[in-house]
Design a protein around this nucleic acid. Structure first.
Lengths: 123, 123
DNA sequence: TGTTGACTTAAACCATGGTTTAAGTCGTAT
DNA sequence: ATACGACTTAAACCATGGTTTAAGTCAACA
């Protein structure tokens, strides 16, 4: 296995090192190994987990929710049902949010149209 | 013109009264009239403006940005170009965010598929 | 050997977006 | 008259999601 340092992980995902440390402290990145000097070593599994964390973060799952999910992952295969439920629920929430944004975007487009077609002295 | 009270506005958009007061204080709802007793009166124009505020909020424009926009609206017709620019920029930001969410949703769907097809004792 | 750069920690700090509280003022129904 | 519900204010409070700071350790290079 290849390991990477915090600076490499930071560069890879374009996330500040401070944020990665914060995530670890919050339990989003458990089981991170250290070298003899106490420096974090991200295994490939950790990187994959980080990718999942980022995916959940991008879809606006709160940190507490991500932690719940990660805790289930760590707990092992007998939590797969629960994880499935979580992901299904989250999926619905994400779809709802995308719908709301898409709907609200229409209001913005109306303004763009209106402001574009303002033909001199007309409201 | 019809006017409505804060409780009516609150009910209409399903937004707490405290939030409406907060928005007014932040400059998102300027020029709100009062009755003799000092109570807010939302005119139809104010309600329309509030609808815009909500639309921008739903698409994650920060309060500072919404205030900028509202300030331009209040300033009058000579700011239409600027408003158009703002809305165009915001539109791009919203599209980018929707893209990111949609893309990240794929990662979630992969998990759902994986967890759904876990056929007994297989990783 | 010493100084530089990458890392560590805990704790303090910050911005954002509200929500809650406390104290008070009205208008109206009893 | 009074008591109730709807409203007002300013200020305090809160959660979320980080970021920054201060002080220290370590490896490697000059």
């Amino acid at each position: 296995m290849k390991y990477c340092s915090i600076s490499e992980a930071s560069a890879k995902f374009n996330i500040p090192e401070s944020t990665l440390r914060y995530y670890e402290k919050k339990g989003l990145l458990p089981l991170i190994e250290r070298d003899e000097a106490g420096r974090r070593l991200f295994s490939e599994d950790q990187i994959a987990l980080l990718e999942t964390v980022i995916c959940l973060k991008n879809t606006h799952m709160p940190i507490s929710g991500i932690k719940q999910y990660i805790d289930l992952v760590v707990e092992g295969d007998n939590t797969i049902e629960l994880r499935l439920e979580m992901m299904k629920n989250h999926r619905q929430a994400v779809l709802a949010e995308i719908s709301l944004m898409t709907e609200s975007l229409k209001g913005i487009d109306v303004k763009i149209t209106r402001y574009t077609n303002v033909p001199r002295k007309e409201k």
